[in-house]
Computed example of a mutant assay.
Amino acid sequence: MKVITLYRRVEGRIRQWVWGKQGQNLKLLVIGRHINDGWLAKCVIFFLLSILAYLYLQPLLYMVTTMFKNINDLIDPTVKWIPRSLHLDNFQKAWDGLKYPTAFTNTVVISLTCSFIQVFVCAFTGYGLARFSFPGRGLVTFLVILTFLVPPQIIVIPLYIVYSKYGWLDTPLVFIIPAIFGQGMKSALFILIFRQFFKTQPASLVEAAMLDGASAIGMFFRIMLPLARSACLVVFLFSFIWYWNMYYEASMFLPKQYPTLAISLDRLEDNLAGMPVIHMITKQMNPVTEGAKMAAAFMIIVVPLLIYMFLQRWFVRGVERSGIVE
Score class of each variant (00 low, 15 high):
residue 25 N to L: 13
residue 71 I to L: 12
residue 326 E to Y: 08
residue 288 V to C: 01
residue 186 K to T: 14
residue 80 K to L: 11
residue 68 F to M: 07
residue 242 W to M: 11
residue 282 T to H: 09
residue 285 M to C: 13
residue 155 I to P: 12
residue 72 N to G: 10
residue 49 L to N: 07
residue 212 D to S: 03
residue 39 W to S: 10
residue 125 T to C: 08
residue 113 T to L: 05
residue 152 P to A: 12
residue 62 Y to A: 05
residue 79 V to S: 05
residue 297 A to E: 06
residue 131 R to L: 10
residue 298 F to K: 03
residue 275 M to S: 15
residue 132 F to H: 08
residue 274 G to Q: 05
residue 169 L to S: 02
residue 295 A to D: 00
residue 125 T to V: 15
residue 84 R to T: 05
residue 150 V to T: 07
residue 56 Y to R: 05
residue 19 W to Q: 09
residue 60 L to S: 03
residue 214 A to E: 11
residue 314 W to H: 15
residue 170 D to L: 05
residue 322 S to K: 00
residue 203 A to S: 14
residue 105 T to M: 12
residue 146 L to T: 10
residue 324 I to P: 13
residue 118 Q to D: 07
residue 37 D to Q: 04
residue 112 L to C: 12
residue 266 D to Q: 15
residue 11 E to I: 15
residue 159 L to K: 06
residue 192 L to G: 02
residue 251 S to C: 06
residue 252 M to R: 04
residue 314 W to G: 14
residue 150 V to M: 06
residue 263 I to V: 14
residue 134 F to W: 05
residue 253 F to N: 02
residue 303 V to L: 11
residue 49 L to H: 03
residue 61 L to K: 06
residue 262 A to V: 02
residue 73 D to N: 07
residue 174 V to R: 01
residue 178 P to H: 03
residue 284 Q to R: 15
residue 211 L to N: 08
residue 306 L to N: 06
residue 266 D to K: 13
residue 67 M to G: 01
residue 236 F to H: 01
residue 155 I to L: 13
residue 139 L to G: 08
residue 160 Y to Q: 09
residue 305 L to F: 13
residue 322 S to V: 00
residue 279 H to I: 15
residue 209 A to M: 03
residue 236 F to Y: 03
